[in-house]
Each structure stands twice: as C-alpha cells, then as structure tokens.
Amino acid sequence: MPRWAMVIDLDKCTGCQACVIACKAENNIPFVSPEQAAMGRTISWMEIIPIVEGEYPRVRVRYIPRPCMQCDNPPCTKVCPVYATFKNEEGLVAQIYPRCIGCRYCTAACPYTVKYFNWYAPQWPAEMRACLNPDVSTRPKGVVEKCTFCHHRLQKAKEKARAEQRELREGDYVPACVQSCPAGAMFFGDLDDPMSTVAQLARSARAFRLLDDLGTEPKVIYLSEGEWYGPRKRA
C-alpha cells in the first residue's frame, strides 16, 4: 500500500502562488467577498505563508507553501465525533462532507490551520459555474473542507492503471499544485517506495517537517538549506 507524500523545496520556491490558484481551479474552491475575506474567511487549501524577518537592510522573506500535511498521526481525526475525517489506509487524511456536522473541532485541533469552514454555500456567478471541475463536488454550507492531495486524481489514476493492467507508476497521480509549480519546487509520490523521488529527497540533509516536535508525523516534507526552526528530523 503506498504512502502518499509531498516534498516542497523551499530553496526553489519563488512564492509565485501558482500552486494556490492551481488548487483553487482544480478543487472548485469558491472565492469569498472582500468583507468576508477581511474576517479571515478566505478558503485556500494550499496557502503560502510568508515569513518576513530581520531589520532593514538585512531582511529575509521566506515562503512556505502549506497544503494539508496528511499527518500519519493526525490530531484532527481524533476529535471528530462523526468519523467525517479519518486517515485511510494509504495515509491520506480524508474529509467526507456528507458526514461532517460542522462542529469545527478538527479546525481547532489542526496545528497547521489547514481546515476551512463553509460559512455559507459557495456563491458563484452563473457564468462561472460552467468552469467547475466535474471531478470534484462543491461543498454545502456548514461543512469543513481541506486539501485532499487531489485524491479524485488518484481515483482516476488507479482506474486507468487497472484498465491498462499495470501497477500505478510514479507520476500517474500528482496533485494539481505539484503539476503546476513553475520553479519545479514540488514533488509527489510514494514515501514507502525507497526508489521514489520523494523518498530520496526525504532522506536529504536539507529535509525537515513543520512543527515536527508535536508528533503529528506530517507527510509533507520541506527542503531547505541553512538554519530552520526546531530540530531537523528524517521523515
């Protein structure tokens, strides 16, 4: 059984946010009004967190693309009272909308703030409904949503591989953000396959994981030269 993981090379990332918009287009993520945005209700499964440090002229800006970490030990699933969010056997943390009751316990539990609540049903102008991705459902009011690692692409990739009577190959299943990254800073694959690109990169001396000391065992691995917050740990 594969263990899907993402590697993001912060040394290559330009902070262009192509991944953010690729995700919004792929996953039918609605935009919210400026007033709602001011209340912090913008939904962005993939978000770039900018960190501005230092004083002029020694200022450093770092960009951290942040999808769902798809933790191996996810804090969000433990608090869900209805099993709407859970970790499946391939290590993906699923979010099943029809089960979700909108209690937002998971939203509070996630240390990476990847969970977003739908305060109202998405509002698209009629014209824009035409360009919704038919592979992804639109979410109703009152449920929590988050990055799925584009698992609808996995559903289709698996089927295609089976129809061609072969195993899933590296590159068959890649989330929209990874596919789009202009700088080639993102990688995706099976962490349990020692020959996969992600497994090799995860062994790099540059590899670390966000908030590693919480014990969440995230499956998004970052690469960066130089110092970083907290200890480096191999994934």
Binding site: N88, L92, A94, I96, Y97, P98, V136
Partner: peptide, 8 residues
Amino acid sequence: TDCNACHR
C-alpha cells in the same frame, strides 16, 4: 470500503 475511494 475506504470512504475516499468513492467520496470526492
């Protein structure tokens, strides 16, 4: 019977 296999 993984929810993720059919739910999207």
